[in-house]
Simulated scan of single mutants.
Amino acid sequence: MVLAIETRPDVLLLDEAEARRIAGLYDLPVTGTIGLLIQAKREGLVLSLAEEMDRLREQGHFWIHDDLYRRVLEEEKER
């Protein structure tokens, strides 16, 4: 975090709530894994957000809150 504060990157990749909170205190732009997936989908690099998020959950043991999962699919018009 100290390096990010000093170098002011275009964006930080953070998924943990506490890290996001601290980044917000310093006005650092943040995205997470799901944000990267959404961007990849918009650029045509990912065909299905549902499939990718399912893969993250099942193979990567990555926790995605059910509300976030549904909201992403609704906002990106997959469901």
Rank of each mutant, 00 (worst) to 15 (best):
L37G: 02
Y69K: 04
A19C: 04
R42F: 12
G35S: 11
L49Q: 07
G32I: 15
W63H: 11
L13C: 08
K41D: 02
S48H: 13
A19H: 08
L3A: 15
L68K: 02
G35R: 09
I38E: 07
H65Q: 04
H61G: 06
I5L: 03
V11T: 15
E52G: 00
D27I: 01
P9H: 08
L14G: 05
V72H: 03
W63T: 03
R55F: 15
Y69T: 05
L28Q: 02
P9M: 07
L25K: 13
R8Q: 15
E78A: 01
R71F: 03
L45N: 10
T7P: 02
I5V: 12
T31P: 10
H65S: 05
G32P: 12
Q39W: 11
L12H: 08
F62Y: 15
L45W: 14
L36F: 06
Q39G: 05
V11P: 08
E43M: 01
V2D: 14
D15V: 04
D66L: 01
V46I: 15
F62W: 09
L68M: 08
A23W: 11
V72L: 03
D66I: 00
D27N: 12
G44S: 06
R42K: 14
A17L: 08
R79V: 14
A4T: 13
E18D: 03
E51Y: 14
A50Q: 15
E18Q: 01
Q39R: 14
A17R: 07
R79A: 12
L37N: 03
V2E: 14
I22V: 15
